[in-house]
Amino acid sequence: MTLGIAGLVGATLVMVVLLAVVRQARAEMGIQLGIAAAATIFLILLPQIALAVRLLETVALKAHIELRFLDVVLRVIGIAYLAEFGAQVARDAGEGALAQKLELGGKVLILVLAIPVVNALLSLVLGLMRPGAL
């Protein structure tokens, strides 16, 4: 099922109305409905996102960029998306403090993931600075 932009907007508006009804009747059910709505929208968008990722991979292959660096970039995007997803759900439920902790966790994981890239860059720069390297 691939929805166009009109379908996406329509589905979102329906979700908003349902959320407004359910939230004032049962607040805890409203949170769960919000999670389900966010997950549904992403799952609807998934095929298009996959196309964009394939495009990135083909461009990287043509530019002879090492595939492990592209892998790091993709992982960072994935972690950022998931952390943002969880943080937004927590913030919607009124737990702003917890949301910020989750965002901190996402940043730390991204930093850890970037360590090999930073190491590679540092060794490259140090290699250039060695006497007689040029």
Partner: peptide
């Protein structure tokens, strides 16, 4: 709430699986 939670957890596991496979 328990019934809906079961449904939501299944949907979330599908979402996480999709993100995992998409971004390696």
């Amino acid at each position: 709430v328990a019934i809906v939670f079961l449904v939501v957890v299944q949907l979330l596991s599908r979402l996480f699986d999709a993100v995992k496979t998409l971004f390696n």
